[in-house]
Design a protein around this nucleic acid. Structure first.
Lengths: 170, 170
DNA sequence: TAACATTGGTTTCAATTGTAACCACTGCCA
DNA sequence: TGGCAGTGGTTACAATTGAAACCAATGTTA
């Protein structure tokens, strides 16, 4: 049942055909996606069940915990999330009383968001939990590798960002 | 409008409060997710438009291109995708005539999947395209960094895998 | 060989997400 | 000040996804 990932092909003519095959298991975008999903899902399960939070909602809380008095638009900027996703996360957080919303008197379209008391409590309980997962992940790397990973991600992010900005590769 | 990511807090008491804040911009699971989404979406846009393929459908083709004669269950195993997602990808690929399906006479529940002629054509046109993106990404790294990334991903993947298997961190 | 558990795969239904249209307010310029 | 473009945010609707129920074939045990 298990497949030998090193065997190029199981049929006879493989030798010629295999040349430009795509080795999905080595294909960076694919590996990133699998890794990211595994990690996010595991963590989301840990806090989602306990505090009734979706991933976007938790992200909003995480940002507000660090940067009070943001508007939805500023959250969009910070998180790279879609504005609709933010809007929904905000309204579910309001329903849970995890955040507060107040009008900006200077601009009545703008709504200033903050963690509520309750929200900050929850935030402070989730943070160590999230950090525990991250530490566990990072624990599988040496200090040197952690540092390498950091700079590599930065570079990849810039490149991918560039695709989005000046359109894709021809 | 832009936020200074290095400023811990904008309010007065920040010095004490900031200690155990979560710095989302440095939080590995978050960064992985942003990076992965940016990359996958960019690539999907490139082939999706031209060949009417979703990401899961393309993944199925990529695996079948390398490993003929797989069943849906074996695809699940290879891709770590959900079996429902596979089922839907398969049926959309059948609709496009990109793959063929035949009964396994030895086990009449099992259906053997393969790229069709047309499917292989498409596959062979997408592969270089996908590789071009990957090369572009990898081009932002040195040979050494590429090698480092490879081994780091492997380690992280193992760790995240372990979460899934023996349940989460207590 | 009758019952029941297991496996391969699909369907159904609800929840989540993305796109586009939209409303309310502000800022600008005639 | 009146019109109009731009911004902040929400709503509506369609497409995608996920969980669970389901059907059909097989394997297993008595």
């Amino acid at each position: 049942m298990t497949i030998d990932n090193n065997a190029p092909h199981s049929n006879a003519e493989s030798l010629e055909v295999a040349r430009d095959d795509l080795r999905l298991e080595k294909f960076l975008p694919y590996r990133l996606s699998v890794l990211s999903n595994r990690v996010s899902n595991a963590i989301a399960q840990a806090y989602g069940a306990r505090f009734d939070l979706t991933i976007p909602a938790w992200r909003v809380m995480a940002i507000l915990g660090r940067f009070p008095d943001l508007s939805a638009a500023e959250l969009v900027e910070q998180t790279a999330m879609d504005k609709v996703a933010i809007s929904r996360a905000v309204s579910s957080l309001l329903k849970n009383d995890y955040i507060t919303r107040s009008e900006d008197p200077a601009d009545r379209r703008r709504q200033v968001l903050n963690l509520s008391e309750l929200g900050r409590d929850v935030y402070e309980r989730i943070v160590p939990l999230a950090q525990q997962y991250e530490n566990d992940l990072m624990g599988s790397l040496s200090a040197e590798e952690r540092q390498q990973l950091d700079s590599i991600i930065e570079k990849l992010m810039d490149r991918a960002q560039a695709w989005a900005e000046r359109g894709l590769i021809d």
